[in-house]
C-alpha cells in the first residue's frame, strides 16, 4: 500500500512518514500542490493525505485536478475547522477530513476505512451485520435482534447510502442527491428528520453513537463495526 503525503511542513511529513512506515505503508512525501498532482499521476498511490494550506495552490484545487484522472481516496489534513472548508473539500471530492492536530490512531483508522472502500470489490456481502443489526441488501430487509424492522423506502435508501460508505464522512448535499435525487441539496431538514427516524428504529443514540455519527453542519458518517 502506497501513501502519498502532500504537506509543506517538513515536521509533519517526517512524523507521518515514520508512523505510516511503522504500520507497513510505503510512503512518498511532497511539499507543494503541483508536486502532489504530478506524484498522484506518476506514482499511482493507493491513498493521498493532503494538506489544504499549500504554498502554491489551495488543497481543494489539488483534489479537483487529481479527480480529473484518478479515484484515489484523498484524506484532508488541515488546521482549518470551519464547516464551509470541510464541506468545500468534501464536495470537491475528498473522502474524509481530519483536523490538525490529530491522533495518529484516528488517522490510521480513517486511512484503513478509505483503503477498504477503494479496495478491489470484494464479492458483495449479501447481508451486513453490525451487532444485533442485520441488513439484507438483496431483499432490502432490516432486522434488529432477529426482529424485522419496518423501514420506509426513503429510510432504506438512506441506510444503504450510509452502510455502503463505511467510515466515510458523507455531506448533507451528497446524501440528499443520492437518496432524494439530483434536484436536492439544501433540504437538510428532510435529511435530519429521516436520520432521526432511522436512528430511533436502529436503536442508536446520537449522543453516544455506535452506528451513525453526526458532524454538525457537514454531514453523517457510518461507524457501525461489522460483525
Amino acid at each position: 500500500m502506497k501513501v502519498l503525503v502532500v504537506d509543506d511542513e517538513p515536521q509533519i511529513r517526517r512524523a507521518l512518514r515514520t508512523s505510516l512506515e511503522a504500520h507497513g505503508y510505503e510512503v512518498a512525501t511532497v511539499g507543494t500542490g503541483e508536486e502532489g498532482v504530478v506524484a498522484s499521476a506518476d506514482q499511482q498511490p493507493d491513498l493521498v493525505l493532503l494538506d489544504l494550506g499549500l504554498p502554491d495552490m489551495d488543497g481543494t484545487e489539488v483534489i479537483r485536478r487529481v479527480r480529473g484522472f484518478s479515484d484515489v481516496p484523498v484524506i484532508i489534513l488541515s488546521v482549518r475547522e470551519a464547516q464551509s472548508d470541510k464541506v468545500a473539500a468534501l464536495d470537491a471530492g475528498a473522502d474524509d477530513y481530519v483536523t490538525k492536530p490529530f491522533a495518529m490512531e484516528e488517522l490510521l483508522a480513517r486511512a484503513r476505512a478509505a483503503l477498504r472502500r477503494a479496495g478491489p470489490d470484494e464479492p458483495l456481502q449479501p447481508t451486513l451485520r453490525y451487532g444485533g443489526l442485520e441488513i439484507d441488501l438483496a431483499r432490502r430487509l432490516v432486522t434488529l435482534d432477529g426482529e424485522q424492522l419496518h423501514v420506509t423506502p426513503t429510510e432504506y435508501s438512506l441506510l444503504e447510502a450510509l452502510v455502503s460508505n463505511p467510515g466515510k464522512l458523507l455531506t448533507h448535499q451528497w446524501l440528499l442527491r443520492r437518496v432524494w435525487g439530483q434536484g436536492y441539496g439544501t433540504e437538510t431538514t428532510y435529511l435530519r428528520t429521516y436520520i432521526r427516524a432511522l436512528r430511533k428504529k436502529l436503536g442508536d443514540d446520537a449522543s453516544s453513537p455506535a452506528l451513525i455519527v453526526t458532524e454538525p453542519g457537514v454531514g453523517y458518517r457510518w461507524v457501525g463495526e461489522s460483525a
Binding site: 464547516q83 435530519r192 446520537a206 449522543s207 453516544s208 453513537p209 453526526t214 454538525p216 453542519g217
Partner: peptide, 19 residues
C-alpha cells in the same frame, strides 16, 4: 456563517464527542 441548524443535533454531537 449561518445555515439552518438543529441545535439538538449539535448538542448530541458535542456530547458524543466529549464522552
Amino acid at each position: 456563517k449561518r445555515v439552518p441548524t438543529a441545535v439538538d443535533e449539535v448538542a448530541e454531537a458535542v456530547v458524543a464527542r466529549m464522552r
